[in-house]
Nucleic acid binder design. Structure first.
Lengths: 148, 148
DNA sequence: ACTTACTCTATTAAGTCAATGTAGTTTCCA
DNA sequence: TGGAAACTACATTGACTTAATAGAGTAAGT
């Protein structure tokens, strides 16, 4: 299960992507139309800003907007920022590898071997699908194309 | 990330599958060879027993053993028992569907649409791979066969 | 009987999640 | 130039989950 926070982040980015670029959107507007607690959304957008995904403009006509084109922001990138590693086991994470303390030998670990496949399948979807894909009506990547 | 408990459960089942059937294994033995806290493992095996995956025999020559053949116990089944739903969003779970309270219309939810692909890919691996597959040296299901 | 091992319920300590609170700072505009 | 609207930052809260432990009890073989 992904966190509520991640879901909010993705929904907010989709909402931003639907607006014409360069035109800031109020936090309050996103919060209301998406049903996200405003203060919580502030926190989330702030975090996304620190990672260079969005930009904000202060003052009366301020608001948030995408800093990078929507088709360069993948779901995987957002999830890793908000929720941390995507991998189902710490010993399978690319961004935060950690050996399983219990588990004698990684190469022969049966559980790891199976979840390596899960991790690959998951990453294939999440790293290929962008916010722009999500906004578009059609599925961008067909499941049958995922593992070529 | 799957829970530590799920990892222990899978490792314990793999350990049981490696023993000749009908010959009970002591909890203490599994706990020691796998580096699992014994009392915690008792809890886990008890839960698996209640779900009909393993059987136990009491007394001096007691212990645990698989109740069903290892090739009929999938990773997905074990995970659902121990960790609950596998789906990345409540609105995508088969065993515990719950509507996302925030989210106006499910059919048009962009986030849901993307994670439906993740759920499908994940389930394809987890429901096809069994304990017996994990014990065997070769990968049972090649990734490229997953989505036919 | 006595030992070994399984059975069950309860408890706890630590950590995480989702959200809220409070105190600011910046910018625009009237 | 005053203030309203909006963003920034950090601290705190309460509920819940996770991982593990505790302890009293039951069953079975020798």
């Amino acid at each position: 299960m992904i966190s509520q926070k991640a879901k909010y982040a993705l929904r907010a980015l989709v909402a931003l992507a639907k607006h014409p670029a360069g035109q800031p959107v109020f936090i309050g507007d996103i919060a209301e139309t998406q049903g996200i607690p405003k203060k919580f959304l502030e926190q989330i957008l702030l975090e996304l800003k620190h990672h260079g995904l969005v930009a904000s403009k202060r003052g009366k006509a301020g608001g948030y907007g995408l800093l990078r084109p929507a088709d360069t922001i993948s779901f995987g990138e957002v999830l890793r920022i908000v929720d941390g590693p995507i991998a189902p086991l710490p010993c399978l994470s690319k961004i935060a590898y950690r050996r399983c303390e219990d588990c004698k030998e990684e190469a022969s670990c049966e559980v790891r071997r199976v979840f390596a496949q899960v991790a690959e399948a998951t990453r294939t979807v999440l790293d290929r699908t962008t916010i722009a894909d999500a906004v578009g009506a059609d599925l961008p990547v067909r499941v049958r194309d995922l593992v070529a």
